[in-house]
Amino acid sequence: MKRHELYVQLISELANYILRGNPKKMVISLHMEPDGFHIAAIDDRPRTDEEIAEIEHSLMLHQRPELASYYGTMVGHDLLGSARLELIGFQVKGVKVERIPEGGVMINLWVGSEDFDPGLFTINEKARGV
């Protein structure tokens, strides 16, 4: 898959998820490196600890190549019905979800190829899910 397609699809699914929470603000940033990229999404909707745990659980699904290469192709394409963070979860190398002072949450995703070098990004051990 061309990289820019993956950017568009992941951002689209993430935006779909955030917008379904009816926020007043949403910011999405993208940091690209040769072997990976970092997407950060911020909104202003307050969430409970349980909701944050659910976001993390969906995104922290361990690497599932058999699902990612088949069902994962729906990411960012088919937006009818509820948003599916787990489609993103199949693809990512690291995740961090945290509250921000303004009241919303910041969702950080690190995605990379086999040669992904976490050293190029602000990714820690916890975010890598290890």
């Binding site: 088949y70 069902y71 192709t73 729906m74 394409h77 088919d78 009818l80 019905g81």
Partner: peptide, 15 residues
Amino acid sequence: MPPLAIAMLRLHQGY
């Protein structure tokens, strides 16, 4: 089969 399976997913969107 794989290209067809992936294309068909888009038709019904996983339903």
